[in-house]
């Protein structure tokens, strides 16, 4: 009998991710790409690539759970589940204990509380503004003429304590212009941007207990984890392949369905 595969596909605001599990729950393939303007195409591409990873084709992937902003686009999905539930499921698999999850996404941030038994019992989403999200960092990187991927490397070189005081993205960018005009070194500005992201997060929730961070921003910018850890005075856990946590959770849900 042919092996059965379980797939989670997370069509995020910025990046689409897919994770494929085998029957025993092992991850057998991962894929990601920019979501772009065609969610379905991004999802199909990722599905194609995870299927190819196990010498299969997307048509044979019967058990797909879709999540993320574009979850409605995947018609062949068994079901669609919010990224909040999927992140909770994915993180709990990596850290089976009471956890407070902080997911920093491209467009929004989420804080999700999970009990020791793995029950999600509360969640919060950031407000309407993109302050503190991946989109904010992208804008700042653009303003500093630096590729986003290099922003944290730049920030690592900072030695000072420059801060952005404003809550809103537009005001923060105005402050940034002032810093540039004052001749503030670029690494300091980059670090101030990460500090701003972290401030927005600790404003969302007291972050009680064991904190776990996930999402693309965390995967690519460990500095955010360090800054959150400094802010709360405790160690913060990060699952392997943090960017794929939502897709992984979705795949686990597909396997349990």
């Amino acid at each position: 009998m042919a092996e059965r595969w379980f797939v989670g596909v997370d069509i995020g605001a910025s990046v689409t991710k897919a994770v494929l599990l085998d029957e025993t729950g092992n991850v057998r393939a991962r894929a990601c790409r920019n979501s772009g303007a065609d969610f379905l195409a991004a999802a199909q591409d990722c599905l194609q690539r995870v299927a190819a990873g196990v010498d299969s084709v997307p048509e044979q992937l019967e058990r797909i759970v879709a999540t993320g902003y574009g979850r409605g686009s995947v018609q062949q999905a068994l079901s669609r589940v919010t990224e909040i539930t999927c992140h909770a499921r994915g993180c709990y698999e990596s850290f089976p204990q009471a956890i407070t999850i902080v997911d920093i996404g491209g467009q929004d941030n989420k804080v999700i509380a999970v009990t020791a038994e793995g029950d999600r019992h509360n969640f919060k989403m950031n407000r309407k503004c993109a302050a503190g999200t991946g989109a904010f960092l992208e804008e700042i990187a653009g303003r500093l003429d630096t590729p986003l991927a290099g922003l944290s490397e730049l920030a690592d070189r900072a030695t000072g304590h420059v801060e952005l005081g404003s809550f809103c993205t537009v005001f923060a960018k105005t402050e940034l212009l002032r810093l540039i005009a004052q001749g503030t070194p670029v690494p300091e500005i980059a670090k101030a941007a990460f500090r701003s992201v972290v401030k927005r997060i600790v404003e969302m929730d007291p972050l009680a207990g064991q904190v776990v961070m996930t999402g693309g921003v965390v995967a690519h910018h460990r500095i955010v984890v360090d800054l959150v850890s400094d802010a709360i005075g405790r160690e913060v856990l990060v699952p392997d392949h943090a960017q794929y946590t939502g897709a992984y959770g979705a795949a686990l849900i597909a396997r349990e369905a």
Partner: peptide
Amino acid sequence: TQIEAFVEQ
């Protein structure tokens, strides 16, 4: 998403 996630919860 919030409403859906709340009902899932």
